[in-house]
Design a protein around this nucleic acid. Structure first.
Lengths: 145, 145
DNA sequence: CTTGAATTGATTGATTGCAATTTAATTTTA
DNA sequence: TAAAATTAAATTGCAATCAATCAATTCAAG
């Protein structure tokens, strides 16, 4: 054990986290292609399917993304007629994002995706739950910063 | 519980994985800035500090990255005089990447980084180990694809 | 009221990440 | 051996991601 062992790739937690995240996103690709969505666009739609109407700030807080990522992505979803973007009348700084009928209809096509991805992970339900809990704990620390 | 509950953001494993990965990368930013490295460049250096000499294919297999990502990144590290890029003499298709003296010296400046990041995650050692094991299991499934 | 601070999104620039294609070199096979 | 298949890396094009900055709006203190 020399002093440099702490720098070995296999001793870092960050690396499997980073790699696993990217690999899971690849699981989604063939499932999302028929819907015409990228992974990040899918996450935005997931949120909007639940809430229907949200502003950019709330969307960013929910997904840990900032306007630099969201602005072009939302414009793209708007150009696909899945959402509308309108300024709030009470506060002109706020941009309200809302699903269209077409956007909401897309939800039905996504229903089978979670189960298919879950099967690909190779984790049992218990393992998924443990992983889930640990990740949210980590995210809690990140938010606390 | 309606049929759409499976599409709730908080019922997806992919989301905390994706968000936690990005948040951890942000932990590294202030620690890597003094070294002049980005997170991905740091991962490449971690691998090369261990092996010193590798080709692009091996590097890609290790980090789950392809030449589209690695080629420009390695050119950047070369321009910073941290590595050299040379074609193999036995097989001209193969590009050998190797650390320079300057590249190896940078290692000493990175020694404290893992401990500092680990502290920021807010996870106990046991939790880190569980998380680590689950992520590698997931990565195993991905590799098996 | 008015000035200064805070907030919200948009923009810009650099880096990643990846799929798809291309080029060059090597290996296999007919 | 010649043609076909394979392999390694580079290139291209598009979409993220994020830091930093900017502009417009709102809010708050004096």
């Amino acid at each position: 054990m020399d002093e440099y062992d702490v720098l070995k790739l296999e001793n870092q937690l960050c690396f499997p986290l980073y790699a696993a995240s990217r690999e899971i996103i690849k699981f989604y690709k063939p499932l999302l292609d028929p819907l015409g969505l990228t992974y990040t666009q899918y996450l935005v739609m997931l949120v909007l399917w639940q809430r229907r109407k949200m502003n950019v700030k709330e969307l960013g807080d929910t997904l840990f993304l900032d306007s630099g990522t969201l602005t072009p992505l939302l414009k793209k979803l708007e150009s696909m007629s899945l959402i509308t973007r309108t300024r709030s009348e009470e506060d002109e700084r706020v941009l309200i994002v809302e699903t269209t009928v077409k956007g909401r209809r897309l939800r039905d096509k996504a229903l089978d995706i979670p189960a298919e991805v879950s099967a690909l992970t190779g984790l049992s339900q218990d393992e998924s739950l443990s992983l889930y809990a640990l990740l949210y704990k980590l995210l809690g620390s990140a938010k606390a910063e």
